[in-house]
Write a protein that binds this DNA or RNA. Structure first.
Lengths: 187, 187
DNA sequence: AATAAAATTTAACATAAGATAAATAATCAG
DNA sequence: CTGATTATTTATCTTATGTTAAATTTTATT
């Protein structure tokens, strides 16, 4: 739990009581490389914290698989478009490496919001921050060339190339594998 | 205030006390067509509710003006990447028509969060919903053609063409005016 | 280690969208 | 109402990325 608590502290430090309450709704999950943590069609009812490993969210656009995002150690991952709407998700979460996660039940978490305003505040801040990241991602996709986006990704996550197959990176960047290979070939 | 209260009710109905507390931190603002409501370089300290009119958020990418989003009546608009980080915004909010707005001071609002958890919950839900919209927008930009995005916009906001100049729509769609004109010409 | 499977690169050609410039249409200010 | 400004369209040419297919390299399995 230490990693998770440090993560929380970056947003909104919690009282001991609140930490204990969260600890009670957490479960450890281990997942083998390439396995889905959550599958397409199910409603998102769990928020995961990554202790070890790499995750991606992916979905299909007309039988082509698209990677929406990656998440590495000490980050939270959830399919928010399902978590916040209660609708089934068209997306899946897959672990790209053998991974260790902490699973937080969203129903129980939302219950805790009623007894611990500080927990509601914590997650408000976590998701506000994720929201800002997504707003910035729109800008990145819309107005930077594929090459610029590739370089920006390398700068942001220098180890992504070591840990994530290029085919996933290509669709994350919004281009084909062939295009990515071309961009990489230039230098 | 009635429109604003109805808007709130869609997310999290408030007690009378909470409504009164919010009412106290609201101001009416009228803005003429084409005027900036908030300008580039200032930190976002106000959340606006649009009673009448159309707003857009825009910014510059290498001296080319880009429209990030539009907002119509009965919606909230704010430059969240500044609101949630406290950093100065590279973006401006402009009113495309003569408009009436309600301005909510973000500092005072965040203070109210401490006395009214229900207000914090309300805005948590409002921004969670906006976050989901942004996640969906990433998908739309990344994996639909410009023509698909144009048609989707028309379906979503059928009156956008009557109320918003095409040059703004073009950059919102991530294409040039010339490209948009070409797409429109096809049919 | 050998083979099979998967991932990545390379090549050739096609296409959507960009850039620039000019023409036309719509809007605005006096 | 008229000229001036701004917005939109049309035309031409260029370019980045897509598509398909084949070649090569890497990884996984027996």
């Amino acid at each position: 739990m230490n990693e998770l608590i440090s993560y929380f502290n970056k947003y909104n430090p919690l009282s001991e009581n609140a930490i204990n309450a969260i600890a009670e709704i957490c479960k450890s999950v281990n997942i083998k490389k390439n396995q889905d943590l959550q599958s397409i069609g199910h409603t998102c009812r769990t928020i995961y914290f990554i202790k070890k490993g790499v995750a991606r969210i992916y979905y299909y656009k007309e039988d082509i698989e698209i990677t929406e995002c990656f998440a590495f150690e000490n980050a939270i991952i959830a399919r928010v478009e399902s978590l916040f709407t209660g609708k089934p998700s068209r997306k899946a979460i897959q672990m790209i490496e053998d991974s260790e996660l902490i699973a937080i039940s969203s129903a129980k978490l939302f219950d805790l919001y009623n007894t611990f305003p500080e927990i509601e505040r914590l997650f408000r801040k976590i998701f506000e921050s994720a929201y800002v990241d997504t707003v910035n991602r729109v800008e990145s996709i819309q107005f930077h060339s594929a090459e610029e986006r590739y370089n920006a990704l390398l700068k942001e996550s220098p180890n992504v190339l070591q840990r994530v197959p290029l085919k996933y990176i290509a669709s994350y960047l919004g281009i084909t594998q062939v295009s990515l290979s071309r961009i990489r070939g230039i230098r």
